[in-house]
């Protein structure tokens, strides 16, 4: 079976810095894949390349059988891939529902239909009480949920989550892990960048490890965690343990 997303030979340099080098990556339908690696490993760049906000220097990206290399982000999104941003980008002067509607209007062009869908998603993610508040007034944890809600509103088959757990408390993280699992249970595949190892280990069926822009390991969470190269890359980084 052909995977949902297939990335091969993906490379990107910024001036003299090679951010991503010859990256290969696949995500199957309904699968949860973790993308981990130390800071500066090229994870967010890889997301940018896959989602279309950055143009790769080399490589191929095939999503649902279409080559999406060089497509602008809105076209990639229309094909069924949505992403969240590590540094959240809510529309601060729009209400929470309006924020989510921006994602939903692509599938439901009529504002009333998009609003109904968006309210359902906002409720589902526990933001119902804040639905008509301005996004700029949300707390960090709420803004994380808003990112997720907006991405979900685009009705993706593949969700790219960039550090949605970072900065959250323990209980908030647990809730979010449960919610992400529920999203996945609906058949949405997930590729997630995460520094909170406990979360990745429990969510991902497969983990890809990046270091210096290159893939240094791939496999089941338990295998990867014991891989000497991975431990070396993370040396001194207690987060892995």
């Amino acid at each position: 079976m052909t995977p949902l997303l297939e990335v091969a030979g993906l490379s990107k340099r910024f001036g003299g810095l090679v951010a991503v080098k010859d990256l290969a990556l696949t995500v199957g339908g309904g699968e949860v894949v973790g993308l981990i690696g130390p800071n500066g490993a090229g994870k967010t760049t890889a997301f940018g390349l896959i989602s279309g906000s950055l143009v790769p220097d080399a490589g191929e990206i095939v999503f649902r059988g279409h080559s999406i290399k060089g497509l602008p982000p809105h076209r990639v999104c229309a094909l069924g891939m949505a992403r969240t941003f590590q540094i959240m980008r809510p529309f601060p002067r729009l209400t929470v529902v309006r924020n989510v509607m921006i994602g939903g209007l692509g599938r439901h062009p009529h504002p009333a239909a998009a609003e109904a869908r968006s309210r359902a998603i906002v409720d589902e993610l526990g933001l119902g009480a804040k639905a008509d508040h301005l996004a700029g007034s949300l707390t960090l944890a709420e803004r994380k949920r808003l990112e997720l809600a907006r991405a979900l509103a685009t009705e993706p088959v593949l969700l790219l989550l960039d550090e949605v757990m970072s900065g959250l408390g323990e209980r908030e993280t647990e809730t979010l892990v449960r919610e992400i699992r529920a999203i996945n249970a609906r058949g949405i595949a997930i590729l997630l960048i995460e520094h909170v190892m406990r979360a990745v280990m429990s969510l991902a069926q497969r983990i890809v490890v990046l270091d210096g822009g290159e893939r240094i390991a791939e496999g089941r969470p338990a295998t990867v965690a014991n891989d000497p190269r991975v431990i070396e890359a993370y040396l001194g980084d207690e987060r892995l343990v």
Binding site: P73, H74, C77, F85, P90, F91, P92, R93, A153, T154
Partner: peptide, 12 residues
């Protein structure tokens, strides 16, 4: 508010 975020949400 944010063109980049719009693009990511499927807005041309």
């Amino acid at each position: 508010e944010d063109e980049g975020a719009c693009e990511a949400l499927g807005v041309d």
